[in-house]
């Protein structure tokens, strides 16, 4: 299956394959790095380091297999081995500030129809995103990681197990605990979304 079997790739072939198969993953990879480090410069460094390693070990990558999962695994290992120690403390977003917004009269008042309409407006959608992000950022990094991999990037449990080097059972239980924790943080907010209506 692999074209590299029995022959060494020329530099041109390697560069072309690297570009075609690995660079398209840049966007999700950068997003993952950002969600882990919570810092754009750190995410930038981590992604660069990941691609350098991927290039160095490209001969071990089997063409046609899951390039995204392979790169995510390299990035996760880099983060754990080197980055985590030196990376800054997660920026603490002032949760109460956003929370206060949703507790205004407009939301809790009797103007139910207007509230529902407002919930669809772009600015409110942005606030929902901010709220979810700030809640997620307060979770321990292991919890944050499984939620990002599963809900944002759509990896299967099996892929997550490979990326994180843990058994599938651990993926399940970690995801369960992570969601419970996130749920707790967002519960108040979920009510303002009209869940209770």
């Amino acid at each position: 299956m692999s074209e590299q079997t029995g022959k060494q790739l020329s530099k041109e072939e390697k560069d072309a394959r690297f570009e075609a198969e690995l660079l398209p993953v840049l966007d999700p990879l950068y997003n993952f790095a950002y969600r882990l480090t919570l810092d754009e410069d750190d995410a930038n460094d981590l992604v660069q380091e990941t691609y350098l390693k991927a290039y160095r070990f490209f001969d071990y990558f089997e063409q046609g297999t899951n390039a995204k999962a392979w790169l995510f695994r390299i990035l996760k290992n880099s983060f754990i081995n080197e980055f985590r120690k030196k990376s800054k403390q997660p920026a603490k977003v002032d949760y109460s500030e956003v929370e206060g917004y949703y507790n205004t009269e407009d939301v809790e008042g009797d103007n139910g129809v207007a509230t529902t309409t407002d919930m669809r407006s772009e600015s409110v959608q942005d606030l929902i995103g901010d709220e979810v992000a700030s809640a997620l950022n307060t979770l321990p990094v292991d919890f944050r990681t499984v939620i990002i991999l599963c809900d944002l990037e759509g990896f299967t449990y099996e892929e997550m197990a490979k990326i994180l080097d843990i058994p599938i059972g651990t993926v399940r239980s970690r995801l369960h605990r992570a969601r419970n924790s996130l749920k707790e943080k967002l519960e108040k907010y979920a009510k303002t979304m009209g869940y209770n209506s």
């Binding site: 690297f18 660079l23 966007d27 950068y30 992604v47 660069q48 995103g129 990002i148």
Partner: peptide, 30 residues
């Protein structure tokens, strides 16, 4: 509730924009 929770992350968490120079930096470093 569980569907709502998943939807909040998958549907509302904003993606960060990759810096335009990053691809070139990676290629140059390689």
């Amino acid at each position: 509730k569980q569907k709502l929770l998943k939807g909040l992350v998958s549907g509302h968490l904003k993606r960060v924009i990759v810096p335009a120079s990053l691809v070139q930096t990676i290629k140059a470093k390689i």
